[in-house]
Nucleic acid binder design. Structure first.
Lengths: 240, 240
DNA sequence: CGGGTCAAGTGGTCTTACCACTTGACCACC
DNA sequence: GGTGGTCAAGTGGTAAGACCACTTGACCCG
């Protein structure tokens, strides 16, 4: 009996999602005014405070601008939104957006090695020991989803070791986007299970405090999954 | 007569800021429950919907978790927050946080070259032409603040050229954090005004479509300001 | 001790009313 | 012709009070 947590979404949550989707889909053009709060409340059959909660949250993400006395208008999310919007963009309507996913992989390949280098310079043997522990678990794991989860933990440790709040926040945003898609990705990445060696080498570079080597090792950690995922996306698009 | 826009902050905004600050300052420990919405409304002398708007927004940033029927509790923002929180962290209480600023500079140095490389590979001569236009303006500018503003525009173009949504969103978040501090930074960076050459070389690399050269050129663009800022922060801390 | 019950407290929602602000039309006045 | 004042309509901002839905923990029972 496989039970899944029951989800109860508040009305404000639902409105929030609806407005977000409409803006991201372009159904609401940039500069266009939204219906008034009263009108939205009436049309949606909910109270005005509920509408307000949703709109205020949308405003905080930068997708709309609400002006006292004036209309609430749609903004260009490509200009105004921050990285926190990524999870919403990556998986839309329950489906992965291949273009965005490619962009995520690119960014990962670009930023990851830098994090590894900083971690090597600052983490010390304590970090290396923790990494080794995860490596040991990786080695003993055959299940794909769990394997990917451990890989994420591994990077979590590296980000901690890099001791940079900006990288930490970036990682959090990326992880939040990545995690919901993990089961789907794990299916594609099944082949990678077992390639523990790059992770071991990276941990060794961290232990040695060797930033340059860690940087190169990180690239070797990231490249296989990047290539597998990109190939999978290409195949997906040919299907469509 | 130097007029500045009048700012009217809603009560929900003020509560939002207060709670955010209390959490970031650690006045509210992780795991600790917040007062109930009714209690907050009473203590602050405002209505409950106003409190709710604020708390829902705080929850969206990941700093607290609100559970129906249970208490609203503080979360560890280092684990839960995304990059959108950066502006709030960088400047706290009207003052720049040196540690965070260092982290921003680090990240910029790490990510910037990658963006430049992608832009060179994908931007084409059209992008190069736009960059050259900004370079010409840079050359003609002696005022420090305006110079920094143009530098930001230059990077904005590069990010567009890189054609990566993730980098775009990262840049937006960083820019939002950077911009309020720009006047203060410009004062420190006054010496850099006039070093247009690196920007010109980077534009040339973009025109040539040479990613590797662009990467190196970007480093040369970023290094001078990075060093100047780091030195300034060190001096700041000695004062204190 | 396991399990059911219940009351208290909390967040979720609705309704209604009023305040503050923006907008645009209209109109005097120079 | 343009300047500024006035006003009404519409919008977002706020308040108050009442219920509903849920969690928690104390309590009681078998």
């Amino acid at each position: 009996m496989a039970l899944r947590p029951v989800t109860r979404r508040s009305v404000a949550d639902q409105v929030f999602d609806q407005v977000l989707d409409d803006v991201l889909d372009g159904e609401l053009a940039v500069g266009e005014p939204l219906p008034s709060e009263r009108r939205l409340a009436e049309v949606l059959g909910i109270s005005r405070p509920a509408v307000r909660e949703a709109l205020q949250r949308v405003a905080q993400t930068g997708l709309v601008e609400v002006r006292h006395g004036g209309a609430t208008t749609v903004r260009d999310f490509r200009r105004a939104a921050g990285l926190d919007l990524l999870p919403r963009l990556l998986v839309r309507g329950g489906r992965l957006d291949a273009a965005i996913a490619r962009s995520v992989i690119e960014a990962r390949a670009e930023v990851g090695p830098g994090i590894a280098a900083k971690a090597a310079e600052r983490g010390g043997p304590g970090l290396a020991a923790e990494l080794d522990r995860v490596v040991a678990e990786l080695e003993a794991t055959t299940e794909s989803i769990r394997w990917q989860g451990l890989a994420l933990d591994y990077w979590d440790l590296l980000v901690d070791g890099a001791d940079s709040l900006v990288f930490r926040l970036m990682f959090n945003s990326l992880r939040t986007a990545y995690e919901p898609a993990l089961p789907a990705l794990a299916a594609v990445l099944g082949a990678e299970v077992g390639q523990v060696e790059p992770y071991r080498l990276l941990a060794a570079a961290v232990r040695a405090g060797d930033g340059a080597t860690a940087r190169a090792a990180a690239t070797r950690v990231l490249t296989p999954t990047a290539e597998a995922l990109l190939a999978a996306f290409d195949a997906m698009e040919e299907d469509a």
